[in-house]
Each structure stands twice: as structure tokens, then as C-alpha cells.
Amino acid sequence: MRKRVLPISAPVRFTFSYAPALSGLLVVMGMLLGCPPTLQAQNLTADTTPTSTAQMAMTYLDQLQDLEKSEAWPGIEPALFLKNIRENISHPLGLYEGNNTNFCGYAALSYLLLHDNPLGYAKLMMELYREGRARYGKILFEPSPEIREAAGKLKFKGALDIRPAEQLWFLCLADHFKGYLNLYNRHYHSGDEDNFWAAVNYGKFNRMVRNLLNYRVVARGSDLIRPSVPDLYDYISEQMKTGTTVLYLNNTNLYKKNHDKLRWNIPTHYVILLDFERTPDGLIRIIYWDYGLRTLQQLKPEFLRKNIFGITHCLKKTSIEP
């Protein structure tokens, strides 16, 4: 991994004696608000974002000797696990978060990993499977016994039932990363994949992308207040020119427009934005990825403005920072 010299102006310097308290306050605000852009400068490290190709990952998997059944993961058969990993590398859009789970944030994060560093993904998954623990970047995954017991045995989640690699990976992520939504349910019990144990608030999502994958993250929005950008269309279009854009939105309203007189407008879902353009009739055509599929939808600009709560722009760190 190449090291890079930080630009002189990059770090935010505190010269006051109360700097620790102030920085702590800023961190708390960042967690709640999804980390506003002013804090992003702190996240620049000397590292570059690790990248590789699908071909490199496949070569690595081809070189592996027979994978033996792991004692750490009693519910996972090695052949099915390996097949699942190969499928994810050759067809990353097929990654599936499962019906009725709270794994959408982890799936969006995995989209980045599978597209930009499939070799890293393959090595991490193999180490996790064999050793029951593994390190990726700064993060050491040490899944709890409950997670190791549950992985491979999740049922009634659609295609996730037959995808043990996704089960293992999403459970490990939810077990390791915690946000304020997970405060009252920190330890896994059967069925917790559907509730607050697995929930991902906006600050946690951005933190995961930054800390685990080592991306430069520019985030606008929060869990409750929509992003204040003067022109949403222009802002998102500009962001999409570089990096990957993740939207944090109210998924329920995307489908059910007017079944209820009273509707809660809170964000519930993460999607990867793939295309975003204005149509001649004034609508906005979006293509996004979630649930193992790309979806095309035409929406009114006002509807989008009301239902997007977070826009996260993930940029690979290179040896020469912009």
C-alpha cells in the first residue's frame, strides 16, 4: 500500500485547551448528523483505498486448496460458502440483503467493497471462515459465539436463505459496528436481524465506509433532517461525476404513496445510486441498486426532495488527494 504525504492544510488543528471536549462534542454531532462535510478533513489519512479486480479475486480463489468445514461456523457448508463468494465476485449486483431484514446499510457498504476491492473481500471472507476472526484495514472482526452459531441458519429471508456468505458477512458487520439505534439491543438473539440490533443510522453508515473501507466520505443529511442543498438535482448530478453515491431515503414512500392519511416520514433504506437524470417531462429518472437488482423509477423532483434524508458520496483515496 502506497503512503502519501498529507497536504499541509488538511488536518483541522485545535489550539485551545478545551479542544478534547470540543472535538468530542463534534464527534457526537457527527454521529447524529451523519458527519457534516466540515469534519471530513479529519478523516483524511495517509492511506489509499485498497483496490483490486475481480480477476485477481478469482485467481486467488482458484489457488485455494479444498476448503474444510470450519468449526467456527457450524451452520455453513464450505462448498456453498465458496460458491456464494464466487457468485458475489463475478456478479456483485446479485448481492442480496434478504426480505424483511435491516441489512440494507450493510449491503450498500458491501457494494463498494465488491466493486472496488473484490480480492480484499475474498481474502477477508476466507480468513473469517477459517479462523472465525479476521482483520480488514483498521477493523478486527471478532464475531460473538451467537453470530457464529446463527450464520448459515437464517431462514424465511428469500434468497438470503441460500446465501451463507451474505449471512456471515452482514451478521459480522452488525455485530461489530454499533450506533445509537443499537444502544438497547447490542447482543444478538435469534430474529434480531429484523430489528434494531441490525439497524444502521446515517452516522454509523458513514463511519463504516470511512473506517472499514477507507474511503473519503462527503455526507449531507441526517436521520431526521433532510439535507440542505439549494438544488438537489444539481448537487447529486455533480456528486455522481466522481465516486459512488449512496442515498438514505424513505423506502416506504417510494412504493406506497397514499394508502394512509397519516404517514411518518423517516428514512429507512440505503440504496446505491447508479443513474440520475431529468426527463423531458420534468420528472427525474433514477436507477438505483438494492435487493440484488437495479431498479428504474421516474419520480417528481418534489417527491425526491421530501424522501431523501442523506446523500453520501464515497471517493476512493488515491496517492494524490484532490
Binding site: Y255, K256, K257, N258, H259, I287, L293, R294, T295, L296, Q297, Q298
Partner: peptide, 25 residues
Amino acid sequence: VLYTDRSFQQVSLEIVTDSLKYIYE
């Protein structure tokens, strides 16, 4: 097929092809 309103006047169609799922209203 989804009726998106209470008066059953608006309909949303989800059509899945090999490459994309299209949602129209």
C-alpha cells in the same frame, strides 16, 4: 401491480426484465 392510493385510481406497475426492474405509476 400496486394500487398506490385509497381511491384505486393510481396504479404502479413493477416489471422485471433481465437487467432492470422498472417501476411506473
